[in-house]
Nucleic acid binder design. Structure first.
Length: 267
DNA sequence: CCCTATGTTCCCAA
DNA sequence: CTTGGGAACATAGG
């Protein structure tokens, strides 16, 4: 479910509550998927970080809780005394003032306790890092996969998922099927130019609630009101009025305007 | 029964 | 060794 703006929304909300708080306990309900977690009581939360779609609670003593929400995970804040939802609650992290509850119907989310990695390889963050067209042009040299799949590859640029990649490619006027190695530096520049405005607006909207995304406090985001193509199959393109189309790439729905993005038929 | 779903990883083949 | 494609993971909803 969550892409970069949704994870960043959670990070900002947790940042208002948690720093300085002591972890009182972690309770795993779904041990078969999440596994046992090391006891980290007595640690305090020092910082909440996001790296791509990973959320990290950095703890005193050098460890961190690393959460990845995958498809359907979300975090929900429980005030002291609140009861976790009956359905799909997979884990609780308790603090004096309340608890973080991981809700995850499809059970793909992961949670780990790790030692903080000082000298990790830096992944390029789609929002925080400034990336140039030349960088991507170089990285895509010899890559024959569609540009859409390249942008979804978290090792190239971290944070984008299906919704925001569709939006960015539409705004940049790029054919999602175009081979990555065939894009010019100018085309990569057009794509990069859309990263920050799209993600910044989506963060300001607290994410996109097209199905069931809710933030830490159970509120829907509002970026769905700003989507240009995602979910608009059959509706007129906002730019040229021709119908938006949907076709799979690598098994994932891809929404696009064949006219504005120059997509040939038969695809 | 069919298809779809905001993500990632693994396996296999070229 | 690298690259790309598809299945797999598990569950709900239309």
């Amino acid at each position: 479910m969550p892409e970069l703006p949704e994870v960043e929304t959670l990070r900002r909300q947790l940042e208002k509550i948690l720093p300085g708080s002591e972890v009182l306990g972690i309770e795993v309900f779904d041990k078969s998927r999440i596994g046992e977690l090391e006891n980290i009581c007595n640690c305090r939360v020092e910082e909440i970080c996001r790296e791509g779609k990973f959320l990290k609670l950095k703890l005193s003593g050098g460890r961190e809780i690393v959460v990845h929400l995958r498809m359907t995970g979300h975090l929900y804040w429980l005030e002291k005394g609140d009861i976790p939802p009956a359905k799909h609650a997979r884990l609780l992290i308790s603090f004096l003032q309340g608890k973080i509850c991981l809700i995850d119907p499809r059970r793909f989310a992961t949670v780990e306790i790790r030692t903080q990695d000082k000298c990790q390889l830096k992944i390029l963050d789609a929002y925080r890092d400034s990336i140039t067209g030349k960088d991507l042009k170089a990285a895509a040299k010899s890559r024959k996969i569609p540009v859409k799949n390249f942008l979804l590859d978290q090792k190239e640029v971290a944070g984008l998922g299906n919704i925001y990649v569709c939006e960015i490619l539409f705004r940049a006027g790029i054919d999602p099927w175009k081979k990555s190695c065939d894009l010019t530096t100018m085309e990569w520049n057009r794509i990069i130019k859309e990263f920050r405005p799209v993600l910044k607006r989506a963060i300001a909207c607290r994410g996109t609630s097209v199905s069931d995304w809710k933030d830490l406090l159970g509120e829907k985001g509002s970026y769905q009101e700003h989507l240009q193509v995602y979910g608009r199959e059959g509706q007129p393109c906002f730019r040229c009025k021709n119908p938006v189309q949907r076709k799979p790439i690598g098994g994932r729905s891809t929404f696009y305007c064949p006219v504005c993005q120059g997509v040939s038929q038969k695809k």
